[in-house]
Deep mutational scan, measured.
Amino acid sequence: MSGNGNAAATAEENSPKMRVIRVGTRKSQLARIQTDSVVATLKASYPGLQFEIIAMSTTGDKILDTALSKIGEKSLFTKELEHALEKNEVDLVVHSLKDLPTVLPPGFTIGAICKRENPHDAVVFHPKFVGKTLETLPEKSVVGTSSLRRAAQLQRKFPHLEFRSIRGNLNTRLRKLDEQQEFSAIILATAGLQRMGWHNRVGQILHPEECMYAVGQGALGVEVRAKDQDILDLVGVLHDPETLLRCIAERAFLRHLEGGCSVPVAVHTAMKDGQLYLTGGVWSLDGSDSIQETMQATIHVPAQHEDGPEDDPQLVGITARNIPRGPQLAAQNLGISLANLLLSKGAKNILDVARQLNDAH
């Protein structure tokens, strides 16, 4: 009898209710805020589980004197976190989706994509230029951005401005803007500013005609071990179906173009009346040469937790077992079709030249 009692006690200790789920994140304040929001949602869904947040620095956090596009290494903000995932030191990792490459290392998958916040870019102005827009900034004003995508589009749109690289986390960039006289304004992701509670610093939100956004911008991705079915089931509740389908289309477009950090590629997606609209573009580094096109596809946005595919093969690095396969494939095909259209119009040449120029500098 006593033996059975011990077995029952052991089973209770090993039951999922007692389990601590370890969540990996970057150390920056924004990353911690984003991770806290994901953990809060998981806690609400699984009140019996405990969650421990483990923060670590990544290569991208450490190399702050070089433009991201020049470092010449993929997975700048993800490699150390993936290493911890691989060694079973954490069970899942919360990322900004735009930091996750469209091809993940073997053994990993994006197990959830959370509801997207505003994906557009924002302009934050130096205190002396508050009330201005990019259009009304004085001639030769210097605007800071760490992104080739932003610089290429904005140089084309605002030729009277000069664009220079600015690195560091959000706090560091804002301090550089406010305390030094080098920059009249800087460009940042609206979602990051909003998550930090800095709505009052948003001086201008850039519309798609001015600057399309990065693939996955404004959404959070939760990376897990691809074979860890328990954790895949656990994080599945975080999937937002519309965000998922938009981001599958965007990531398929980028992957098929073979774009990345070192080339200016941008997108804009919208879901309306059962249609998914995808606009994508590529630019030369100075913005003088560009190709942009829009395509659409009829896609039914499923309700969360309709029964999805059981075999769960990944699409552009994403596993969404609780979302039907048909809409996911339709979104992926839309991204591939748009990429093929741009490639047929000469996108590869623009991107190759951009890559060579970026590598040469």
Rank of each mutant, 00 (worst) to 15 (best):
R19K: 13
R22T: 11
A31G: 08
R32D: 05
Q34I: 06
D36T: 11
D36Q: 15
V38G: 02
A40W: 10
A40L: 08
K43T: 12
A44D: 09
A55I: 08
S57G: 09
T58A: 08
G60T: 07
D61K: 05
K62W: 07
L64P: 12
L64Q: 08
T66W: 08
A67V: 10
L68D: 09
L68P: 08
T78V: 10
T78G: 11
K79E: 10
E82W: 06
H83K: 12
H83W: 13
E86G: 07
K87I: 13
K87A: 12
E89F: 12
V90I: 11
V90H: 05
D91I: 04
D91L: 03
V94S: 01
S96N: 00
K98F: 00
V103W: 14
P106Y: 06
G107W: 15
F108C: 09
I110C: 08
E117W: 10
P119N: 06
D121Y: 03
P127V: 07
K128N: 15
G131W: 11
K132M: 14
E135L: 13
E135K: 05
T136S: 14
T136Q: 10
P138K: 11
K140D: 13
G144L: 06
T145L: 08
T145W: 06
S146F: 11
R149A: 02
R149G: 01
R150Y: 01
A151M: 03
K157P: 08
S165C: 12
S165R: 13
S165G: 13
S165A: 07
R167M: 07
G168S: 02
N171E: 13
R173S: 02
R175P: 05
K176Y: 10
Q181G: 11
I186D: 04
A191Q: 00
G192W: 01
G192R: 04
L193T: 04
Q194M: 15
Q194P: 10
R195C: 04
G197K: 03
R201H: 01
R201P: 04
I205C: 13
L206K: 02
L206R: 03
L206E: 01
V215L: 08
K227W: 06
K227Q: 09
D228H: 04
D230G: 06
L232T: 12
L234F: 07
V235W: 02
H239Q: 07
H239F: 00
P241K: 01
C247E: 04
R251W: 10
A252C: 00
F253W: 04
E258D: 15
G259P: 01
G260R: 02
M271C: 06
M271S: 12
Q275K: 12
G280N: 01
V282K: 04
V282C: 07
S284N: 10
D286N: 14
D286Q: 11
D286H: 09
S290W: 15
Q292Y: 05
M295Y: 15
M295S: 04
Q296H: 14
T298Q: 08
I299Y: 13
I299G: 01
P302F: 04
P309I: 06
P309N: 15
E310G: 12
D311T: 05
P313C: 06
I318E: 05
N322E: 13
N322W: 14
P324K: 08
P327Q: 14
L329S: 12
A330G: 09
A331N: 01
Q332Y: 14
I336K: 02
I336G: 03
N340F: 07
L343A: 08
S344A: 01
L351D: 13
D352T: 06
N358G: 03
D359C: 14
D359Y: 14
